[in-house]
Design a binder for these strands. Sequence first.
DNA 1: TATGAATGAGTATTCATTCAT
DNA 2: AATGAATGAATACTCATTCAT
Lengths: 214, 214, 214, 214
Amino acid sequence: MDRMSVSTPDRPVSNRREATRRRLFEAAVTLISEQGYGATTVDEIAERAGVAKGTVYYNFGGKSELYTALMEWGITRLADTLKEAAPDPDADPAEALTAVLRAGVEFIGAHEALARLLMAEAWRTNRTWYTTVRQIRTEAIGVVTARLDALAAIGRLRPDLDTGLAGSALFGMVVTVALDWRTLQPDRPAEEVHATLTRMVHGLLGTSDSPADP
Amino acid sequence: MDRMSVSTPDRPVSNRREATRRRLFEAAVTLISEQGYGATTVDEIAERAGVAKGTVYYNFGGKSELYTALMEWGITRLADTLKEAAPDPDADPAEALTAVLRAGVEFIGAHEALARLLMAEAWRTNRTWYTTVRQIRTEAIGVVTARLDALAAIGRLRPDLDTGLAGSALFGMVVTVALDWRTLQPDRPAEEVHATLTRMVHGLLGTSDSPADP
Amino acid sequence: MDRMSVSTPDRPVSNRREATRRRLFEAAVTLISEQGYGATTVDEIAERAGVAKGTVYYNFGGKSELYTALMEWGITRLADTLKEAAPDPDADPAEALTAVLRAGVEFIGAHEALARLLMAEAWRTNRTWYTTVRQIRTEAIGVVTARLDALAAIGRLRPDLDTGLAGSALFGMVVTVALDWRTLQPDRPAEEVHATLTRMVHGLLGTSDSPADP
Amino acid sequence: MDRMSVSTPDRPVSNRREATRRRLFEAAVTLISEQGYGATTVDEIAERAGVAKGTVYYNFGGKSELYTALMEWGITRLADTLKEAAPDPDADPAEALTAVLRAGVEFIGAHEALARLLMAEAWRTNRTWYTTVRQIRTEAIGVVTARLDALAAIGRLRPDLDTGLAGSALFGMVVTVALDWRTLQPDRPAEEVHATLTRMVHGLLGTSDSPADP
DNA sequence: TATGAATGAGTATTCATTCAT
DNA sequence: AATGAATGAATACTCATTCAT
């Protein structure tokens, strides 16, 4: 009769709730990345999470709130990953840029569904959460652009390059290659993907000595 | 059984019908690229096309078939554009690559809605029309990869570069930069966008003499 | 250019029209008997008849008018069949009854689809053409009842039998057995079906010596 | 995976749900028997049952599934009624047959709408639920045929009678007479209807002295 | 905390009918 | 006499949301 007896009795209640929320996040991110937001129903999410439909509303208030919370949860992870990528401000800017790209590839490998979902939203302009998505993109591209500016400052970049556009270009390059990798050749090691990107980027650097990586 | 023998033989799909289909394509591509497939109603599409709702069903059979047909119609345009970009097989491969990238940028400028729509679909794996989208990407990336292979054949490319991944990277670069341009700085001339891309690409080419474009 | 050249040139036009109408009847009776009126579309009927949809409207004015015309066409055939069954008023009434039953079985064998269609309509009370169907039933049952009355008049029928109800009973018996025959054992000869009915009916005759219920 | 273990185990379909389903059955059987399946809308059914339209879909999945479930629900009632009609295997077979016919007449009197609906479906061969209908008929006719076989076994039936066809004939006789009674003379007592059927059937019994066809 | 039966506004779809050719 | 593209009212169906338990 007492359904509590099913969960561990001495854990505080909030942990149970937190676990439910996490299961819903995981169910939602997978389904939405595959099918899209509109084509994914609350029923499906609840079923995949192993809870009743009402639980979604009890925990998040609604489908779109769940989605927003999901993306904010994703931002946090992405931001953490990128910050860890180049923690040392005194490091060589070229290596810092390489490290950021590596972090991007690894993030997509680890959070593939989240990445697909964000990319699918990235090109629509009329959606409720457009602002949120734009913000994520801007932050991510900003990290790349900052590295390019640092390189430009020390003359290691072609002076005629628009670092804003170039940052956007590198971002698109990383995301596209990484997701194609996950889709078409998921067994290939991440290192090969990262190496290709590094080689392409090094072509951009201070051309004289550039064919860098040994 | 064959009542064709009674009507005018071999009559192609009527002009009226073809015109109706085109109007529906044009209405659908704009609405769906802005709002997404799920958030766009058949009523909206029909109204924008200036036809009755039933006409969508008469001509395509359903919403999803309309969408599939729309994307196939889009392929034709994109493929034609890219193929026309470098028709001369004897041209300098570096210039041919540049021309393809320019064509890509210009296509996205001219068919922005179609491009957004294709990119939004590009990352989902579970949709009915996934195969169609994949096919488009493969064809488009194939044109780029072919140019890279031509460059590699004459030693104008880093020999350690995986041209498959690199083609995917260039594709993502072009699309991302071009759509960011349309979204954030639509008044900027296409030429500046294209110049940035060219500079980045030239970094990749035969490193010794590369800082090419004057 | 002149589509007339397809039909026989020296036949009057009305023959062509008559042929079209007959083809539509045949298409409609088959489809509706299998699927029902509501589940059969004008498109299906036209396609099966090998004409364009507009032709149905040109010839009949609408779906329900086609159906009404179809049933009237059916009545004519049924009435003709039953009238021919016992043309001689001086014949033995028992043989006359047997002949009517045989005619019923043979009619259903020859116009199976029409019979199914009429039976399916027979039990609904709220339909547009209920009156028409009722009229057919009444006429058919009337023929049977008349034979029973003739038998009663010469003392060949149990005097306590309500010939109205008994006519209805024989009608239902013939139709049910005949349609089950067509559905389940279509290769069985009509004669066996008719023999069974005759045997059952003969049990009813010759009142004096039959073991009546107390 | 198994979230049943969380809720009360083995809980049968909730009473509320069961009540809702029954109300929908009762609403549907009346409307469809009068108007036909195609002419009856889900809106009408829901309104008459006093529930929202969505409830039909929540409980049955669709209009046609509701209809199939309705007919299966009907089978149970008819089969139960006929089986209860002659429960004593030692009873006189003639009386057992009479009892079955009486039960049939009474069933139709009590569940007139259901009977009309089943008869209207009985002759179509192409419908989704054709199998279901066929099964009902087979079961019902089987009860009658079993009684005829019992009579044949003790020599109380004409030996030249095909009991399969005869069972079908009796079934059609009962249904036709009973529905004509409800349609045309609903105030007449059921007993008169039953008496007529009994008289007709008794004509079939006691082979020795009945005037067989030459 | 969680559930799942019920809801109803919103949408996709069907199809008899019209009409210009 | 016939055609078939187009129509739009009618209808089946979906699914986010509510709420009593």
